[in-house]
């Protein structure tokens, strides 16, 4: 470990780390935030105005909110159990301890 800054490419990791998947039907929700802002004809108009802003401008700023909501929903829906997340935090703390203790 001390000699290599890069691991040998053939280190097997299957069997060491658990099999997981990032697949989830919730991921399809991400498409909303990708497709909607690219449908320019949908919002390339002046009316209706909002607070004197042409539609083109306020609608695109409103799409920021759509992006935030969809990604937040996907994050929430696909979030790991709290014990898993705690395990990740523990691992970060343990490595930090190992480092500062090692000096």
């Amino acid at each position: 470990m001390a000699s290599a800054s890069r691991p040998p490419v053939d280190t097997p990791t299957s069997g060491v780390a658990p099999q997981r998947s990032d697949r989830s039907p919730w991921n399809w929700l991400l498409l909303v935030g990708i497709v909607l802002p690219l449908l320019v004809p949908l919002y390339n108009r002046v009316e209706p105005r909002l607070f004197n802003w042409p539609f083109f401008y306020w609608f695109q700023l409103a799409l920021v909110a759509v992006g935030v909501i969809t990604t937040s929903l996907v994050y929430r829906a696909t979030r790991r159990s709290s014990s898993d997340r705690q395990a990740a935090r523990d691992a970060i703390a343990r490595d930090a301890d190992a480092k500062s203790g090692g000096h």
Binding site: S5, V9, D10, P12, T13, S14, V16, A17, P18, Q19, R20, S21, D22, R80, D84, A87, A88, D90, A91, I92, D95
Partner: peptide
């Protein structure tokens, strides 16, 4: 050529034994 990565590398979580801090 030979793939230097494995499928479960792409979903590894922080607490897994395979994960390490980067330099």
């Amino acid at each position: 050529g030979i793939d230097g990565t494995e499928e479960n590398d792409y979903t590894a979580q922080r607490e897994d034994a395979t994960v390490r801090d980067l330099p």
